Amino acid sequence: MRVYGTKIKSDIDFPLDLSHETEIRYEVTLSSDIPCDIKNMITCGLPLYWAHGRHVYLYSDREFEGSHAGQPWCYEVEDVVRFYWVGGERTIYYEMGEKGDANLLGFWFIHLFLPLYMTLEDMYDFFHAGAVEVEGKPIFFIAPSMGGKSTMTDYFIKQGHRLISDDKVPTFIDDGSFMAVGSHPYHRPYRKFEELGYRVEKFTTHFKPIHAFYVLEGMEGDAEITIEEVKGIEKFALLLPSYLYMFSYLKPRRLKYLSGISNSIRVFRVHVPWNRERLGEVHDKIVAHSKLSAL
């Protein structure tokens, strides 16, 4: 399968349709054949977060202050699965928990584990955003939790726009351009626990320069729909909360990366009425604006 611009060679069949032939930057192997020495090297850990009704933990052989070549790691999803890997290597090992199955393994591996792994392995920088193509150009929807980015992404998909990502967008720099990478061709508009949602037919297949960020700001249902450009330090401040996995050891490098994005990609604030019946108006306004801003 291909997800996040990465070819995954696996010894388990996922009950998912990931058949899109997308561009590839990396190759990773997923295996159940866990070397004993990895487990024996793990000595400490910490609670990472609570997600989808389960506790998630991160373990290693040292206090968490960075990611180094040869460092052993374990990502545990309570009762479902443990993923092991060694820093700098491209093989991930899995061990099913008592409640684990192929469906749960697929969800946790694709939706939550891989973005963290790819961050720790310095493969991508991720944004918590919805992203689609407008006339072949990637635009990102940024908003706080429950701020409407999933609803907006869903509406754009249903109007025929290509999906890039509905939640976690990988990015990288190529010859000075900040590139968007497709995550996977599934969309979760209603955020049910432990499922990827429905499969979309139109999914991006190539890495493309990010065109613009649209920051969604909810307004009264009868409010005017407006789009205004954000400039200066406010651009940075609006994008920062959507930059995933701001670990302390990564902070200097990531602030530099975000500064580069702020200096090269335009950011717009969209006043969006809290009224689903007006989504068509918002869509048309953003599409027209995106076309004009490309000129």
Rank of each mutant, 00 (worst) to 15 (best):
M118E: 04
G130Y: 00
Y257H: 13
R191W: 02
I142N: 14
M118A: 07
M152Y: 06
G176H: 12
I225Y: 09
G53P: 01
P170R: 02
S259C: 14
C74F: 06
K158E: 07
R62M: 08
H184P: 07
Y4A: 00
I38C: 00
I34M: 02
L250D: 11
D17F: 06
I233M: 10
K168F: 04
D175I: 08
F140E: 08
Y57I: 11
K291C: 05
H206G: 15
H206I: 11
I210N: 15
K7F: 09
F213M: 12
V132I: 02
I227R: 04
K9Y: 15
A102T: 09
W73M: 07
P273Q: 10
K291D: 06
E277G: 14
E21H: 12
W108E: 08
H55K: 13
V272L: 13
F156A: 01
S293W: 09
V81Y: 07
I8A: 03
P189G: 06
I34K: 04
S264L: 05
D11H: 14
K7A: 09
G130L: 00
V3E: 03
K158R: 11
M96D: 10
R2M: 11
Q71L: 03
K99C: 01
F213I: 09
E21R: 14
E234D: 12
E65K: 05
S264Q: 07
E217N: 12
Y57N: 15
F172M: 05
M41N: 10
R253F: 11
A102W: 02
D284N: 10
L279E: 02
P241M: 07
E135V: 02
V169A: 10
P72C: 01
R188N: 10
R269E: 12
V169S: 11
F83H: 06
V56A: 13
L279Q: 03
R54A: 11
F207T: 11
L16T: 03
I24T: 01
L114Q: 03
S293Q: 09
I34N: 03
Y75G: 09
D17H: 08
L114N: 01
L48G: 04
E135L: 02
L116H: 06
D11G: 15
F203R: 01
H289A: 00
A212C: 09
L16S: 04
F141C: 08
D174N: 11
S60R: 07
Y59T: 13
L292V: 09
E201Y: 06
T226Y: 05
R62A: 07
E201C: 06
G260I: 12
E63S: 08
I110A: 02
G218C: 10
M146C: 07
E23L: 03
Y94M: 14
K231R: 10
S145L: 01
I92R: 08
P35K: 01
R191H: 03
G182C: 14
F203V: 02
I261Y: 13
L114P: 06
Y243V: 07
T151W: 11
K208W: 13
I164N: 05
E98S: 08
W274R: 15
F207Y: 15
E65S: 07
M123I: 13
M246H: 10
G106K: 04
D154Y: 02
D11I: 05
M118F: 06
I173P: 15
V267H: 12
G280F: 01
G218L: 14
H184I: 12
S242H: 13
E21S: 11
D79R: 07
V28S: 08
E121W: 06
E23K: 06
G160R: 06
E234T: 07
